[in-house]
Design a protein around this nucleic acid. Sequence first.
DNA 1: TGTACATCAGTGAACGCGCGTTCACTGATGTAC
DNA 2: TGTACATCAGTGAACGCGCGTTCACTGATGTAC
Lengths: 203, 203
Amino acid sequence: MSTTAARRDRQREQLIEAAERAIAEKGLTGLKARELALEIGCSLGAIYNLVADMDELVLRVGSRTLARLDATLSAAPKPASSQAEATEALVAVALAYSAFARDNLQLWRVLFEHRMAEGAVVPDWAVSEQMTMFRHILEPLVTLVPEHSEEDRNLLGRTLFSAVHGVVAIGLEEKLIAVPRRELDRQIEGLVRLACRGLAAGG
Amino acid sequence: MSTTAARRDRQREQLIEAAERAIAEKGLTGLKARELALEIGCSLGAIYNLVADMDELVLRVGSRTLARLDATLSAAPKPASSQAEATEALVAVALAYSAFARDNLQLWRVLFEHRMAEGAVVPDWAVSEQMTMFRHILEPLVTLVPEHSEEDRNLLGRTLFSAVHGVVAIGLEEKLIAVPRRELDRQIEGLVRLACRGLAAGG
DNA sequence: TGTACATCAGTGAACGCGCGTTCACTGATGTAC
DNA sequence: TGTACATCAGTGAACGCGCGTTCACTGATGTAC
């Protein structure tokens, strides 16, 4: 039977979950092969039967984080038939993004911090996963600025995402004084409404 | 004479400059005490007569970077007597920021990436330096939204800075496909104009 | 059912590398008389 | 000007720590006959 293969899959799953916990608690630098081995109850070497190297592990954790983020954003209200509703939808997505980042601070950071070991490239599946996130922004934009070309909407979506991301990232940065949650939410909501008003005012 | 103290000051300067060059070329992880010693022609141990530890060195390099950034932003046109001029001033500052980030990619990243060794806090002088940067945003805002309270303008300035920073940061990120310079500039200009239009349209 | 054999997951000591920081020592610089 | 001494910058080998990855070996699992 493939009882042995099934066991390996189960262990791999455990490994990834342990890695996720470790990162969530201690950040990327708190991820140690030895500790993971200890935690899932296997030897140090056995890890390399489950995963090629630590980079792959980090990538897989990132993949899970993206999936959860996507699920969170999907929960926000979607259908927008008027410009006003589209604005509300964008505000809701932005606030959901901010809340997710706050609740998953370390895991969320890994999505942006991690750089691969000199060599090469982020695998395709990781890139395409990132793309799906944009859908939550693009859908309301169709309602908000129907006259834009798809190309322009994509760029606009990217800009809006980056802008909100920036506010969240600097707001949650511990280097300066941490911004209280309510304040941060107000900033984000203000920014999105400002942009939407600007778009409505003729763009 | 203090010829010996003067020499030490000169060496310290050389050390910081060498560190700056190393970071600019190879990033923060490319900064090695041994290489610096080699470069400025002193022994490894002597570095610790010039500087307490590597953290201080990174902070000092960051300080220089902030000073240069401030000088760059100051070069952008300033006086704004109308709302339209204020908008142009903000656009100019944002584009100057983007250009600086691109031209000083690694040094600029250090400003945000570097986290102190577990222990404690960023020294006061570093914090206050960061604050001076906001002045380039706040001045045009006085003209643009004179009816806002100073408190509100500060928050708005922070939000605008964070938003532009986010667009630049993600635009220059190498993880996804690099955004061509012209495209990035258009995104930034678009964002700032959008926000200004939104502010003018009643905020 | 039983025996011989092959496969491969599992093991953990050891490898290899990197690197900031310390410290006992040296020698030049500057001071005191 | 000259001598004795003190100070302290300068030295670099060694310390200490951390950690991902490898690899010769073992033993359990599963297969063939």
